[in-house]
C-alpha cells in the first residue's frame, strides 16, 4: 500500500528540511581530538624528547644533563663494538629477508591461484603463527633447534651432519626464528601483489608458445616485483628491530642493536647513548618503510 496523505507529507517535509540543513552528513573533526591528543602527548612528544636526549651529555646517576653534544653519536661511530652490532643487525636482516622471500613466494603463488574454502584454510595456516606471542614463537624454535632437539636428531639420522649443530646462542638460530616471524608478512604481501596481475597476460604468453617456466620468469615474476620488494622491506624492518628473539635465542651471544639499546638504557643507564642508538635504528627502519610506501605509489597498473 503506497504511503500517501499526511504521513507522506511529513516525510517530504523532512526531506526538504534535511536537504537544506543537514547535507552532507559529516562528523565533526573534533571527534579526532582525543586520539590525536593521545598520540601527540604519548608518542610525538616522547619521540622528540628522545631525539633531544640523544644530544645530551651522560652523567652517571642522573641519566642525562646539558650541555648539548654529539658525544653519543661520535661514540657509536668510534667504538668498533657498536659498529659491528650495526653490521650484524643489517647482515642478519638481509639474510632473513632473502630467505623469507624465497620461502614465501611459492606459498603466495599457490594462494593466489586457490579460491574458496581451501584458500581460507591455507590463508589461516599462514596467518595463525602471526597471532602467537613472539615469546612463544621463539620458545618453539628453541625447543626445535636444541642440540638434543628434533631437528638435530633428524639431521643426524639422515646423516646430513655428524655432530649436532649449535643453533642456540648463535646467529643461525636467531635467523631461523626471525624468518619464521617474517614469513606470514611476506606471503600476504606477495599474494596481494600476485592477485593484481591480470591472468590474460599469462594466457597470452602461453598462446604465443611460452613454456610454463618462461611465463613465470618473464611475466609473473616481474609483475609481482612490487610485492616481493615491499614484503621483503617489511621483513627487513621487522628483523632489524626485533628484540625478544635475539634476546632469548641469542643468549647474549648475538649482539643486535636492540640488545645494546636495552643494555645501555636499563643496565648501564646511559640514556643519551641508548637514545642515539635508537635513532640510528629508527632512521634505518623509517628509510626502509618509507621506501615501501614510495614503491607502492609507483606500483604499475596491470592493464
Amino acid at each position: 500500500m503506497p504511503v500517501t496523505g499526511e504521513p507522506m507529507r511529513q516525510v517530504e517535509g523532512r526531506i526538504s528540511l534535511w536537504r537544506t540543513r543537514m547535507e552532507p552528513a559529516t562528523y565533526s573533526p573534533l571527534l579526532l581530538l582525543p586520539a590525536v591528543l593521545l598520540i601527540l602527548i604519548f608518542f610525538v612528544v616522547p619521540s622528540l624528547w628522545l631525539l633531544l636526549v640523544s644530544f645530551l651529555t651522560y652523567k652517571p646517576g642522573q641519566f642525562y644533563a646539558f650541555p648539548v653534544t654529539l658525544e653519543s653519536y661520535h661514540r657509536f661511530v668510534a667504538v668498533s663494538l657498536y659498529l659491528s652490532a650495526l653490521q650484524i643487525t643489517v647482515a642478519l636482516g638481509m639474510v632473513v629477508t632473502v630467505a623469507a622471500v624465497v620461502m614465501g613466494y611459492p606459498v603466495a603463488y599457490l594462494l593466489a591461484r586457490t579460491s574458496g574454502r581451501s584458500k581460507v584454510l591455507l590463508l589461516a595456516l599462514v596467518v595463525f603463527p602471526f597471532f602467537v606471542s613472539i615469546v612463544v614463537r621463539t620458545y618453539a624454535w628453541m625447543a626445535l633447534l636444541d642440540e638434543n632437539g628434533p631437528i638435530n636428531h633428524f639431521l643426524l639420522w639422515v646423516r646430513l651432519i655428524r655432530m649436532p649443530v649449535t643453533f642456540l646462542n648463535d646467529p643461525k638460530g636467531v635467523a631461523i626464528a626471525l624468518i619464521y616471524a617474517g614469513l606470514p608478512l611476506v606471503i600476504l604481501t606477495i599474494t596481494t601483489s600476485l592477485g593484481h596481475i591480470s591472468r590474460v597476460l599469462e594466457e597470452a604468453a602461453y598462446t604465443l608458445g611460452a613454456k610454463p617456466w618462461q611465463v613465470f620468469l618473464r611475466v609473473t615474476l616481474p609483475l609481482s616485483a612490487p610485492g616481493v620488494i615491499g614484503g621483503g622491506l617489511l621483513v627487513f624492518a621487522l628483523s632489524i628491530s626485533a628484540f625478544v628473539t635475539p634476546a632469548l635465542m641469542g643468549g647474549g651471544k648475538v649482539l643486535m642493536l636492540t640488545l645494546l639499546i636495552n643494555q645501555q638504557a636499563l643496565s648501564i643507564l646511559n640514556w643519551p647513548f641508548a637514545a642515539a642508538m635508537s635513532f640510528v635504528l629508527l632512521v634505518l627502519t623509517v628509510t626502509v618503510t618509507t621506501l615501501v610506501s614510495v614503491l607502492r605509489l609507483g606500483q604499475p597498473r596491470y592493464y
Binding site: I39, F43, P46, S47, L281, L282, V286, T289
Partner: peptide, 20 residues
Amino acid sequence: FFLSPILVPTVVYAIALLQF
C-alpha cells in the same frame, strides 16, 4: 599519523616512553 607508532621499532618507542 595514527599508524606511526607501529612503524617505529617497539624498542625505540619503548625507550622514548621510558624517559618520558
